[in-house]
Design a binder for these strands. Structure first.
Lengths: 226, 226
DNA sequence: TTAAAAATATGATATTTGTCATATTAAAGA
DNA sequence: TCTTTAATATGACAAATATCATATTTTTAA
């Protein structure tokens, strides 16, 4: 079992506020898990009873809409925590988490985390700030969905994927999403997404090789995204 | 100057966790304000340096989108706090707040509130829970904007206004929004909103008298909203 | 009170986006 | 490897929504 004191990603999450003693105790009660691409970490409506700390990999947070389609609310990657909102609200999770690539995660039971809230003010503030960041992001996202066209949203999402998760050596976007998943981020039909990608390709903005997407003209994409 | 100890709306906000001593101190440092309909409480990008407690009235939180149109992110009413996110993140506010009717609000300076976070754990938890609630709402809203049609969103919004803010004696919706504002909640063009309202009227779902809207067939509206 | 401005309403039309059908290509499993 | 299945792609068309023009009504303020 790996030790939390030596875990690097801890430094990027709210957990960085924990003391040495708290970390040692944490090492004992946390459980480590390998999640394969496509596997579910938790599902909307479940009682998770703790938080997941992502050590490696990327997952999608999705919500089922009334029409039966999944919408991707957010992508989450190493250094971030999952399930905070649900734990604090003392409710089942409102989103599902599914691995987009192989992941390493640690689960910390609720009882342990709730103790930090009482004893470690800096940890509380960190969690609050992180949730506040999520809220701001959600507001921005909401306005984009309400006011921008599908084309603008696609351009913006491609740029976001590039900026947030970076590229492979062949300069293709590191996070590989199916067309279906991409469509479910920007909130459109899969066919519309495919069609617009083809348009972007014809315009020389991107290159498509199988699932791989290479951004060729960042500035033009920025202009399209407004 | 009114006393916070005796303020009823306090019981509905995170401030209910404050002790008697804290409330007496709060009464001294808070400032009360009357905001007229249409007036701005704060504007996107401003440094607010504190939070507003709404004693009476309703306001809209809006965000300017890239195309220059305002989007209404949320309606906020008595008992709720404004500016929490911005204060915790230590950033300018990301939304503007504009009164939809005459309002009474109290302003509590940041220095005072931040003290509570250190000393009063229940207050911290209350604030966290309230922000978590906002986040969950935002997620839901996002999925609706992404997946539902304008008609569905309009029906849903009318029901939401009815459930959340209630009706006048003439059974019209209490919160009066212009067609423009209604359109900017559901994320559509003003004309489309007007047209759909006319359709709903023709179908006998609602009644329109000037700005007043009466919901005539709640069940049918629920069906439309899915 | 009346003139001007703003909000609401509606028609005509263009544009965007979704849906269905059907290839084509890629991936998975026997 | 071959077969089957799933993902991607594209055309044809339908539906939803936006835009522009223009009435009509309501509100505002001179």
């Amino acid at each position: 079992m790996s030790k939390c004191e030596q875990c690097i990603v801890r430094e990027f999450s709210s957990l960085k506020a924990l003391t040495k003693d708290e970390l040692i105790k944490l090492s004992d009660c946390k459980t480590s898990h390998i999640i394969k691409k496509g596997e579910v970490i938790f599902e909307e409506g479940e009682n998770v009873n703790g938080i997941y700390c992502i050590k490696d990999g990327v997952c999608k947070l999705t919500k089922l809409s009334a029409n039966g389609k999944d919408h991707i609310v957010k992508l989450v990657t190493k250094g971030e925590l999952l399930g905070q909102r649900s734990m604090i609200s003392d409710e089942p999770v409102n989103l599902s988490a599914v691995a987009l690539e192989d992941m390493q995660v640690c689960f910390i039971p609720k009882s342990e985390v709730m103790g930090y809230f009482d004893k470690n003010n800096q940890f509380s503030m960190n969690v609050m700030k992180s949730i506040c960041g999520d809220l701001k992001e959600a507001d921005d996202h909401m306005v984009n969905l309400a006011q921008k066209t599908v084309k603008e949203r696609l351009a913006e999402t491609l740029l976001y994927l590039n900026d947030t998760f970076g590229k492979n050596e062949d300069s293709s976007l590191k996070v590989q999403l199916s067309r279906d998943e991409l469509a479910s981020i920007i909130g459109t039909a899969t066919e519309s997404c495919i069609r617009l990608l083809s348009d972007f390709k014809k315009l020389g903005l991107i290159e498509l090789t199988g699932k791989k997407i290479v951004l060729k003209d960042i500035n033009a994409l920025k202009k399209l995204a407004e």
